[in-house]
């Protein structure tokens, strides 16, 4: 418990299921505060599942269940008594698939602030602009803030969803493949964003892009078939990993 203050989220012996299918198998790892943690691993190994347990999005899936220990500070994340609404205000998430609301671009970003804060019109406008700038999509949408968000391209929608998530000011930001549809320039902008946010926020990012993981994360967890094979500093994972599987994966030999 000595390092409790430096860890944002701590999982130990966490198991998760969808019905009878075990998606996570005794996961133990600590997400350090004010750092960027990357989750890597082949498709279907449970990265999204773990991320969705961090802010209990799996509550919306009837068949999902979990055992073990998962805490955020002194909050028990698996307890049914946990206030999930408050939890999700503190732990924001950008989903793997961009899901803008069928509203205007502005309304999408203003959605979270409208829920949680009392802002006047100009304050809200400023916050929306800030979020859109941070997500590197401002220049493309500033002239059509009232246009429907579903008219944006896939990559623009993805950045809009990032803007929407940071506009609520979460302590912890979970990002599930936030750059999967982005061009190299936007990808770099999102990486800059993470770099900037890490001084105040804790960030967990799932990525299939090895360069991205090595470029912008402090720690990396390698997942395989529902288990964490290796969790270490990013440098170690990408230069001298302990496990053979990790080495094969980061060198692109499988997955």
């Amino acid at each position: 418990m000595a390092n409790q203050s430096t860890n944002a989220i701590e999982a130990s012996n966490l198991n998760a299921w969808y019905g009878d299918f075990q998606a996570l198998n005794s996961i133990s790892l600590q997400i350090p505060k004010n750092e960027v943690t990357a989750f890597i691993g082949p498709s279907g190994c449970g990265k999204s599942t773990l991320l969705r347990w961090f802010n209990r999005m799996n509550d919306t899936i009837h068949s999902a269940s979990a055992t073990g220990d998962l805490r955020l500070g002194d909050i028990d994340l698996l307890s049914s008594a946990t206030d999930v609404v408050d939890l999700r205000r503190r732990v924001g998430i950008v989903f793997q698939k961009a899901n803008p609301f069928p509203k205007s671009i502005f309304e999408n970003v203003a959605f979270g602030p409208r829920l949680h804060m009392k802002l006047n019109k100009t304050e809200l406008q400023d916050l929306v602009e800030w979020a859109l700038r941070k997500a590197a999509v401002w220049e493309e949408v500033k002239d059509r803030l009232n246009a429907p968000a579903l008219g944006l391209s896939g990559g623009q929608q993805q950045r809009l969803c990032i803007a929407r998530a940071i506009a609520t000011g979460p302590e912890i930001l979970l990002m599930d493949e936030p750059c999967s549809a982005l061009d190299p320039a936007s990808t770099l902008a999102i990486e800059d964003l993470m770099d900037e946010l890490r001084s105040q926020y804790t960030i967990v990012i799932v990525t299939h892009n090895m360069q991205q993981a090595s470029r912008c994360s402090d720690k990396t967890a390698f997942f395989f078939e529902g288990k964490v094979i290796e969790f270490n500093s990013t440098e170690k994972i990408f230069t001298t990993p302990n496990a053979k599987q990790t080495e094969d994966y980061v060198r692109g030999k499988f997955g």
Binding site: N55, R88, G92, F95, N99, F101, G112, T168
Partner: peptide
């Protein structure tokens, strides 16, 4: 209405009522 929209509203810290009234009903 796609489940992803429900998730979106809940993921931003909305209650079930927020999600219903502000996202699902309009959609």
């Amino acid at each position: 209405v796609p489940k992803t929209l429900r998730d979106g509203a809940l993921g931003l810290g909305g209650t079930r009522f927020d999600a219903t009234v502000k996202v699902i009903l309009p959609a």
